[in-house]
Each structure stands twice: as structure tokens, then as C-alpha cells.
């Protein structure tokens, strides 16, 4: 898959729910169609919750990539 260049980055490492979900949704709300958001997380539950909740703000999850021990990078495009 071609690397998508994110327009914004949210570094949510160290935070537990609901902070990563809430901040992701808040950011998505302000973004324009086609823009891409990169969310960095290290909390396992957020990896399950963000993909479940992002579509409610028009976010399409393009990829979830493991970037380290219990660390993930989620790429979301605003539709």
C-alpha cells in the first residue's frame, strides 16, 4: 500500500480511554474531506475502540500498523 501522508498527527501515547477516542473524534470533526489524520496510541483498548467509533464522525480507517511493543499507528481519512 502506498504511504499516505497525514495532514495531522495526534500523539495519544500514554493516555487511556476515553481520551484517545474523544480527541480523535474532535479532530475528525474539524477536518475537511480527503484530509488524513495519523493517531499514535499505546493503549490496547484504543486500537479496538477508535476503528469502531471513527466512522461516526465520517472517518475511514485506512490502516492500523504496529510500530513497536504495544504501540500502534492508525491512519484515518475524513470522508
Amino acid at each position: 500500500m502506498a504511504e499516505v501522508k497525514p495532514n495531522y498527527t495526534l500523539d495519544m501515547r500514554g493516555e487511556v480511554c476515553p481520551v484517545p477516542d474523544v480527541e480523535t473524534r474532535r479532530k475528525l470533526k474539524t477536518m475537511k474531506t480527503g484530509e488524513v489524520l495519523e493517531v499514535l496510541i499505546d493503549y490496547p483498548l484504543s486500537k479496538e475502540r477508535i476503528p469502531a467509533n471513527a466512522p461516526k464522525e465520517g472517518g475511514e480507517v485506512l490502516s492500523i500498523e504496529e510500530t513497536g511493543p504495544s504501540e500502534w499507528r492508525i491512519i484515518i481519512r475524513k470522508q
Binding site: D11, G14, E15, V19, D42, P69, S70
Partner: peptide
């Protein structure tokens, strides 16, 4: 299940 990590939030408010 490889989910252990010492996690520090960046935001002092946390």
C-alpha cells in the same frame, strides 16, 4: 499478549 508497556501520558493535565 504483548500488551505490557510502561506508559506515560505527554499531557501534564493527565
Amino acid at each position: 499478549f504483548k500488551e505490557f508497556k510502561i506508559r506515560f501520558p505527554k499531557d501534564p493535565k493527565s
